[in-house]
Structure formats: structure tokens, C-alpha cells
């Protein structure tokens, strides 16, 4: 695999995406709404007189919310960039160039992962900064950054983003309507939200770094499994003769 070839594919997709305002909105708006809304909510809770101990229980849940976003945000771009090519019937000439199937797949994945990760991570920085600003008085220290947050933002979110892209590629190979592909693609938030709910029900400790590492390991495993299936679906012969 030649990364330069992947990058040519990715940069073409990125150039197309930046021209589509609604795609940019749906990628960037939600993470930033959450980045601003949660600190406001926390401030409100503090004003209500919540104890500092309750806060340190609440903050990991809020922070974990960004992982749920990782199951949602990339599907917009991934579905658009694959179903879009399918509708424009541009995959055939693209596959006729000296570019391998994997290079195209990786290029398209980069084009979906970079903006999604950029949006979620930059929103998380805003979230951490604002949260520190509203909680420092009550807690007497800056809650962020911490190891748990580092694991969520730098490990779980990227792994979740990759899974979301893989899932979207699979959906895109079966669907020929961008919107439907995006909607089905966003279904991945269900299992992600499931982990969150398990945390709320105290079945897992989302503030515990050991637990987060186990979740990361499980995600990595599913990512690899998906990669195997995706590579089988994203083969030129499949694309040209069996994709609908």
C-alpha cells in the first residue's frame, strides 16, 4: 500500500466535502453544541448545590458522551463519499487507475476519519476547558486533563471513529441513497450508547482507567473483525458486479 496514493484519494474527497456545507455542519455542529451545553449544565448543577463527590461521578459520563459521538459523526462523510461515487458511477474509472482497492478504501476512510476526529477532539478540548472553568471553584482543582479523559479521547474515540467508518462502508455497499446510508450508518450509536447506559447502571465504571482499557481492547478487536469483512466487500469485482 502506497500512502501517497491513499492521500490523493483522501484529499480529493476532502476537497469535495469542504464544498458541501450541510456535511460540514452535521460533522462539526453537534460536537460543539455538546461542548458548550455540558459545561452550562454542570454550572447549573453546581448552583443547585450538588456535592463535589457527586460531580466527580457525573463528569466521566459527560466525557464518555464524546465516545458516543464517534459512532455517529463519521457516517455522514463516509456514506457520502462512497454512496456519492456509486451514484455518480465514478468508481469504475477510479478503479481503472493504478490504485489498489485497499488504497481507495484507506483514502476514503482517511477523508471521513480526519474531519470527524478533528471535530470531536477539538470540541472535547473546548468541553474540558469550560468544564474546568466552572468546576475548579467547587472541586478546588482542575478536573481535566486526567488519565480517564486521555483514554476516552485519544483511544476510545479514534477506535470508535474507525468502527463507524467501517460500518458505513458496509452499509454503503448495500444502499444507493446517501441519506438512507447515513441513517443506517448512524445506528452504530446504539451499541455505543449501550456502554454508556451500562455505566449509568453501574455495570461498568466509566471513570476507571482499567475498565476503559478493556473497552478499548474490545473495540480494537471489533475494528479488526470489521476490517476483515470490509476488505472482502470493498473489492473491485464486488464493487462492479455485486454492489447495488
Amino acid at each position: 500500500m502506497r500512502l501517497s496514493q491513499c492521500w490523493i484519494v483522501a484529499s480529493k474527497d476532502l476537497a469535495t466535502i469542504t464544498k458541501r456545507r450541510n456535511i460540514l455542519y452535521s460533522t462539526f455542529v453537534v460536537p460543539f453544541i455538546i461542548a458548550f451545553m455540558f459545561p452550562l449544565l454542570i454550572r447549573y448543577i453546581i448552583e443547585k448545590g450538588t456535592a463535589a463527590s457527586a460531580l466527580s461521578y457525573l463528569l466521566p459520563s459527560f466525557e464518555f458522551f464524546f465516545f458516543i459521538l464517534a459512532g455517529l459523526i463519521p457516517s455522514t462523510i463516509a456514506s457520502y463519499s462512497i454512496v456519492g461515487e456509486k451514484v455518480e458511477k465514478s468508481l469504475e474509472p477510479l478503479l481503472a487507475t493504478p490504485t489498489t482497492d485497499s488504497e481507495i478504501l484507506v483514502g476514503k476512510s482517511i477523508a471521513a476519519i480526519l474531519p470527524a476526529l478533528g471535530a470531536i477532539l477539538s470540541a472535547s478540548v473546548v468541553f474540558m476547558g469550560l468544564t474546568d472553568a466552572v468546576t475548579a471553584g467547587k472541586l478546588g482543582y482542575y478536573y481535566f486533563p486526567n488519565w480517564g479523559a486521555a483514554l476516552v479521547f485519544l483511544l476510545l474515540v479514534p477506535l470508535g471513529t474507525v468502527m463507524s467508518v467501517e460500518w458505513s462502508v458496509l452499509i454503503s455497499s448495500r444502499v444507493s441513497d446517501v441519506r438512507i446510508a447515513q441513517q443506517l450508518g448512524s445506528l452504530l450509536i446504539l451499541p455505543f450508547a449501550g456502554i454508556y447506559v451500562a455505566g449509568e447502571l453501574n455495570l461498568v465504571q466509566l471513570g476507571d482507567t482499567g475498565t476503559l482499557l478493556i473497552i478499548a481492547g474490545a473495540l480494537a478487536l471489533v475494528d479488526l473483525l470489521f476490517l476483515y469483512v470490509v476488505q472482502a466487500a470493498f473489492r473491485r469485482e464486488e464493487i462492479l458486479t455485486r454492489w447495488k
Binding site: 480529493k12 476537497a15 469535495t16 464544498k19 458541501r20 455518480e88 458511477k89 465514478s90 468508481l91 469504475e92 474509472p93 477510479l94 481503472a96
Partner: peptide, 10 residues
């Protein structure tokens, strides 16, 4: 190819 397959936004 039989379908031109251009990128219409570009």
C-alpha cells in the same frame, strides 16, 4: 467507461 462517472461537484 460506458458511464462517464465524473465528479460533478469538481
Amino acid at each position: 467507461p460506458d458511464n462517464v462517472g465524473l465528479y460533478e461537484a469538481l
